[in-house]
Design a protein around this nucleic acid. Structure first.
Lengths: 146, 146
DNA sequence: CAACAAATGAGATGCTTTTGCATTCTGCCA
DNA sequence: TGGCAGAATGCAAAAGCATCTCATTTGTTG
């Protein structure tokens, strides 16, 4: 089962009111193919270098930020410094992150979503966004807590 | 209703294996009295200055980090740059933050806690920590979404 | 295909946080 | 209570992440 959209393309960039340039196309393609699905700007920079594309880090930050504004990409602030980006396929989800190996898995839980709305209501807040991240050790034996 | 501990003191610093110095005492006292309860290192620096205590920013970062290791203080990474610290009174809770005025309120929801455990279990993760932050506009009319 | 606006690259810059090192202070023991 | 070893502090420099500046290059539209 996949999200609403499986493939992004130049049209998505154009629809965002952005010119279809090589850096933008390459970055979008990379996010699409990315194994992990969750990459930092630095990761994007290095992966593109490996692929023979020399795109400045400043451009990568700019493009990712623009993609974020356009709703093509979501930015997460996990603990540990750098922001992490992932393609936005239109389905909200939260994350569970391995604090040993960095593996990121996604989940969605309607019960939690509902409770959040209720809590916000009780406190008189509107809900514009939320971030839930669980940190732990994944099932890889090498990562199990000592 | 208050947490397990209402007052921190030099003993807490000593028990953490740290020497009881003026900067540490002042910082701990400030966290205790702080209205907001959630302050950045910069905030601590300025508040102490206002109180006539000149303590270097580097020291404040060092002390807060030590307090964190000692479990006296919890560090949060809300969106927007700086880390914020709060006294750890022994009760876990999550946060709801106003994206307009920065107000921070706390909440605890057993249902959400339970669901998190179940989700981690399903994914084969252990749960070492988690961070749930809801972002929205608070009840202050000046903050209501335009 | 010309012309203009938008985008890029490289390096400078800003901010938050950490670190190195010389000086000062705490806690402990004689 | 005086003195000492190790810990803590302050300052300035550095590090890490992200953004900005500006000259140059590249899409796009007519």
């Amino acid at each position: 089962m996949r999200g609403k959209k499986d493939m992004m393309s130049g049209d998505d960039i154009r629809n965002a009111g952005l010119k279809v340039t090589l850096p933008r196309v390459k970055i979008l393609a990379l996010l699409e193919q990315s194994e992990q699905g969750h990459v930092s700007a630095e990761d994007v920079y290095k992966l593109l270098l490996d692929a023979g594309e020399e795109i400045g880090l400043a451009t990568i930050y700019r493009v990712l930020t623009q993609f974020e504004s356009a709703g093509l990409v979501t930015r997460h602030h996990f603990e540990g410094g750098q922001s992490v980006f992932e393609l936005d396929r239109g389905e909200h989800h939260d994350h569970i992150v391995c604090i040993k190996c960095g593996r990121v898995e996604e989940f969605f839980d309607q019960t939690i979503e509902d409770r959040q709305q209720e809590i916000a209501k009780e406190k008189g807040f509107s809900v514009e966004a939320h971030a839930l991240t669980i940190y732990g050790y994944c099932k890889d034996p090498a990562c199990r807590a000592s």
